[in-house]
Design a protein around this nucleic acid. Structure first.
Length: 364
DNA sequence: GTATGCTTTCGGC
DNA sequence: TTACGGCCGAAAGCATAC
């Protein structure tokens, strides 16, 4: 069955939200920063507006590097305001929902949507739908966005990446091959630095080159599942359905320590408010949880975790604190380097809202 | 052998 | 020349149950 699938991307989202609130920012580089509070300017760039990008500022770049690139230029380095962006994102998604068959939020600033029915399988009417989505987001929230329309999710994402910001790209079924073949393999969803490096080793640089690579060769390079995926998606084939996502399956908080340490007391002091944070979020969601994990990032930036899954869900601070402390001890036992960052994560949620009597637990 | 559940790591945004 | 966050979901790897 042919489908009409879209991918929506909110342009330079965090920075654009700040521009809307303070329009004088529109003429200068805007850099949204995650400060780690270790030292002046420690941390990374979360998002930058296009003015900053044109000057070489990129997501994930250390803030100090961005400052160097913008030396002598008037620019706004702003701290992330996550709650604000969460609210704006929610407003946008609520605007889009009634205009599509199915909406799958795939991050704070992007979503896939299926408009097969609402567009009656026609790419011409899909254009109308996409324009109306762009228009309503601009009108009601003030945000520009980019949309890609294609026969499936993988190509829709390639399409939205093709022209931005404020783009609208349609790739009809008959154009999928010609559209994607010249694009770099790392544009393909699921292909990051690791996969693309392995491919480059075999002189496979474009999606077209990947498309004509024998499946047998891919299976020598990757495990079966990834090989199959690369083979199909590079040929423009993808059957992944657009499915609504419920609430997050895990809640976590992570921070950078004031200084590297492997002193449990010192680390736990900084962990304590985060334990309260995740618990607070679980209370707001009216859930208890069975799994508790501690996350550590070592001085060499490698990651270690320790997890505990309980028989019975909990939702009290005392038990959570104790478990995290135990897990912290176990984590530190696993290596002898210092910790740089530390976090806590809960998952395995059970709703408390419409929970019946306790008898449910002991029924056969 | 297959299904299922838990722990850990990986990688996208 | 280096510099370096805070989330999330997916999947790998492993153990156990059937």
């Amino acid at each position: 069955m042919p489908r009409v699938i879209g991918h929506l991307d909110l342009d330079y989202f965090y920075a654009q939200v700040e521009e809307i609130e303070n329009p004088s920012l529109k003429t200068i580089p805007v850099i949204i920063c995650v400060y780690s509070h270790r030292s002046e300017d420690s941390g990374v760039v979360s998002t930058a507006n296009y003015n900053a990008r044109e000057r070489g500022v990129k997501s994930g770049m250390p803030i100090a590097v961005a400052k160097r690139k913008l030396a002598g230029i008037e620019a706004a380095f702003l701290p992330v305001r996550q709650e604000k962006y969460d609210q704006v994102s929610e407003r946008v998604m609520e605007l889009v929902k009634p205009r599509v068959d199915t909406l799958e939020q795939a991050g704070i600033d992007e979503a896939f949507f299926d408009i097969t029915r609402v567009s009656r399988e026609s790419f011409d009417s899909a254009t109308v739908v996409a324009r109306s989505i762009k228009q309503v987001i601009l009108q009601d929230v003030g945000l520009s966005c980019t949309i890609g329309i294609a026969p499936n999710k993988v190509v829709a994402k390639l399409a939205s990446d093709f022209k931005k910001p404020d783009g609208l790209t349609l790739v009809k079924p008959e154009d999928v091959k010609s559209f994607s073949s010249s694009l770099s393999v790392d544009k393909l969803y699921g292909v990051g630095t690791k996969t693309s490096e392995i491919l480059r080793g075999k002189e496979i640089r474009t999606i077209g080159e990947l498309a004509t690579t024998k499946l047998e060769l891919l299976e020598e390079l990757f495990d079966r599942k990834l090989a199959q995926y690369l083979h199909l998606s590079s040929n423009g084939l993808d059957e992944e359905p657009v499915t609504e996502r419920g609430e997050a399956a895990q809640i976590s908080r992570i921070i950078t320590l004031k200084q590297n340490s492997r002193n449990a007391q010192e680390i736990f002091e900084q962990l304590a408010p985060m334990i309260e944070d995740v618990l607070k979020k679980s209370v707001e969601r009216r859930v208890s949880f069975r799994s508790i994990a501690i996350i550590g990032i070592l001085a060499d930036l490698s990651t270690r975790t320790r997890n505990r899954t309980l028989e019975v869900p909990i939702n009290d601070l005392h038990t959570l604190r104790k478990l995290v402390y135990v897990l912290l001890g176990e984590l530190l036992d696993g290596f002898d380097k210092e910790l740089r960052r530390v976090g806590v994560r809960i998952s395995g949620f059970t709703s408390l809202a419409n929970q019946g009597s306790l008898l449910e637990y002991i029924k056969p």
